[in-house]
Design a protein around this nucleic acid. Sequence first.
DNA 1: GTGGTCTAGACCACT
DNA 2: GTGGTCTAGACCACG
Lengths: 131, 131, 131, 131
Amino acid sequence: MSIEFDNNLPIYLQIMNYIKRQIVSGSLTPGDKIPSVRELAAELQINPNTVQRTFQELEREGIVETRRGLGRFVTSEESKIMEIKKEMAGELLDKFVQGMKELGFGKDDIVSIVTEAVETEFKEQERKSFG
Amino acid sequence: MSIEFDNNLPIYLQIMNYIKRQIVSGSLTPGDKIPSVRELAAELQINPNTVQRTFQELEREGIVETRRGLGRFVTSEESKIMEIKKEMAGELLDKFVQGMKELGFGKDDIVSIVTEAVETEFKEQERKSFG
Amino acid sequence: MSIEFDNNLPIYLQIMNYIKRQIVSGSLTPGDKIPSVRELAAELQINPNTVQRTFQELEREGIVETRRGLGRFVTSEESKIMEIKKEMAGELLDKFVQGMKELGFGKDDIVSIVTEAVETEFKEQERKSFG
Amino acid sequence: MSIEFDNNLPIYLQIMNYIKRQIVSGSLTPGDKIPSVRELAAELQINPNTVQRTFQELEREGIVETRRGLGRFVTSEESKIMEIKKEMAGELLDKFVQGMKELGFGKDDIVSIVTEAVETEFKEQERKSFG
DNA sequence: GTGGTCTAGACCACT
DNA sequence: GTGGTCTAGACCACG
């Protein structure tokens, strides 16, 4: 696990997003233990308090659970995970479509732009996997 | 002109985006005069310093020009505007496609999701224009 | 015996309260044997150390007694039990009345609120016992 | 403003409750400015981070609002405040009635106990105000 | 001036 | 070992 931090966004949010993506995309599955505060802090070379905050927020969103003395675990409610996934996708979608509309792009423009973009995006991906 | 401010983003950035969108979408055309710092500050009920900063940034990006004693104007270079438009669209697109990929969505998922979204988004729009 | 654990309160305290309530309400009577550490730990699926701590505290409060080789038993001093009951009730009462006062409720408000609450609370109870 | 801290509860929670009580009971009214982080920290002789946390939580509950660069203010939504008041009262009530029931007290016991308690509690209050 | 974030390091309760 | 809280002090962006 390693993250390239972007200076414009708080670290704790970047880690949150990273973990949420891992859960939502299936890299972490329900019931999995996540690293302890101290472990992750050491690994990412950041302060334990920052990791602590990350985890607290994730817990507040109901995506991880604490078992006292044992550590933290990905929630076992699959439905919660699907909910988060939909929420995250919906946010991305909204921001994109709204934004493009405000820039003056029409219905068909948007679809064709995206179609082209995913084509090249996922082609690169394939090339990478053969590398 | 009125903006609902989102507390998570600096106000000056929100105004910048608002003005850039107006220019890019054609509501403000090259050579148009934009409001003075005092005017805009009064209208939006915010600190003149904040408006000042907005304009400084817009100037730095080459989108508005100051003519001493006359006020500030939208740049008359059409090419600059097209450049901004592409840049803004590219950012939106990247963030969206990257994000969806990270959530585990595939090429076809993304295209179909967008297709559906624009369909409903622009349908609502039409209904509104008839209101 | 099963307890839904609340993550905000130490488990050992929750078990303590559970047992104290059983004693005070008469489900466990003076002289009754209580489960062994191992038994209770297995039943509640928790760490034996935690149960051990529970019992130590109960002993410290004089509510249970250890008879070497025989196990642990509810104290046979009835007066002790009455004392505990009064103490627990007093705590509940104080916290409630103080709290309501601090929220700005008056004397009569509090009485009528409680009257209504017990009415519905015990009505539900009756319905349940007929189920 | 001064609070006697109880060592068993986190400081930030105690301050939260204190402020919530002030709002709910009308000592702080909608739109009022609350002290800045640094001010309150100095006044209560605690670390600014602890105050910061308090305010963040209050904000999350929607009971205070931040206006960037200006400070924090009690929410102007009266309904939100009523909601909080009901929630806090409901919690107190539930904990009390449930607790008393579990101790084996009946409907009428509870009502008469409360009646007596408020009588003495508010009599003391009166005596104090004449002091 | 305001709040937001982060580091460094400490102590505590719980399992 | 685990997480939860707190202090001390710093830097930054914002208005």
